[in-house]
Amino acid sequence: MIDIYCERTGPEFWSEPVNALTNVSFFAAFLLLLPVLRRHWPALSNANRMVSVVLMVLLLSICIGSFAFHTIATKPAMSADVIPISLFQLVFLAAYMHLAMGWGRLEVIAAMAAFFALGALCSALPLPLNGSQTYIAALVFLSILATSHHGHSQRHPKALWLAVACFTLALCFRTLDSLVCPLWPLGLHFLWHLTNGVVLYLCVQAYLDRVSSDTFK
């Protein structure tokens, strides 16, 4: 059993009921994105359709994997939680830079190498962030994409900046989770789930808006 959150007090399946059930935020994001994807679908290229489907599948996988980890709490369940999150980050960032921003392949490869390097550096630093330093690279690169989206998108220019704001808030909840245990045994990790559901919704919405806009065809 892996016990790293305030709410868990034992090895039982429902030892983290709030952390487990708040993964519904990812499923809610998936459901809310279905009509958005349907509306944009005719304007999407085949490549963007494939990326959109992959992101939607990963969104569901995040929901399932995180639920498994907060109930079973084993190493395989942790992998089921971490892998879809990592894949979502990689697919979204690479696809946004290449298909939405029009960066060349070498530029995207260089950017993704920088993303991995920053992620490795932050993970290696002994920062008192309760493990949240592993997401600093994602926050930095999301901010870079938000700057581009804000400067060019005509329909939802603030979507990615809202995602940046929500992700920053989510990281605060994740970081403070262990610190509030003595005062609030439930912890704050469930707020990380709820806020990240909004983050992922905004990211996919921004991507669909950007790649289906006539401005970028």
Rank of each mutant, 00 (worst) to 15 (best):
E7N: 06
F116Q: 10
P17S: 10
S66E: 09
I72N: 09
A73V: 02
W14Y: 07
G102T: 04
M112I: 06
L58W: 03
L32R: 09
W41M: 10
I64G: 07
A47D: 15
S66N: 02
R39C: 07
F26W: 08
A20R: 04
A43M: 12
I2G: 11
F27D: 06
L106W: 08
M78A: 14
F88H: 06
L99P: 00
V18W: 09
Y5I: 12
S61P: 00
M56A: 01
F13Q: 11
R8D: 08
A77Q: 14
S52V: 00
M101I: 05
P17K: 12
G104E: 11
C63Q: 04
T71H: 07
S15D: 13
V82T: 14
S25L: 09
V18A: 05
A114R: 04
V54Q: 03
M97Q: 13
F67S: 10
L87I: 01
W103D: 13
A20P: 03
M78S: 11
L87Y: 05
L118P: 00
A111V: 00
P42A: 12
I62H: 02
H98S: 12
A95D: 06
S61E: 09
P76G: 14
F67T: 03
L60N: 11
L90Q: 11
A113R: 01
H98D: 08
A113L: 04
H98Y: 12
A110Q: 01
G104K: 10
T74K: 04
E12T: 09
A80E: 14
N46L: 06
E7V: 01
A77P: 08
N46T: 02
V18R: 05
W14L: 14
A43P: 02
P35L: 15
E16L: 10
A73Q: 09
A28N: 02
A20E: 04
P84D: 03
K75T: 08
E16N: 12
E12G: 12
V108Q: 05
G119A: 04
F26Y: 13
P76S: 15
Y5C: 13
A43E: 14
E7C: 03
L21A: 03
S25Y: 06
A110E: 03
V36Q: 01
A29E: 00
L44M: 10
A28W: 03
T74M: 12
A73H: 07
N48E: 10
L44N: 08
P84H: 05
C63V: 05
P17T: 04
A77D: 11
A43C: 07
C6D: 07
W103H: 14
L34G: 01
I83R: 09
L44T: 06
V54G: 03
P11T: 08
P35D: 12
W14E: 13
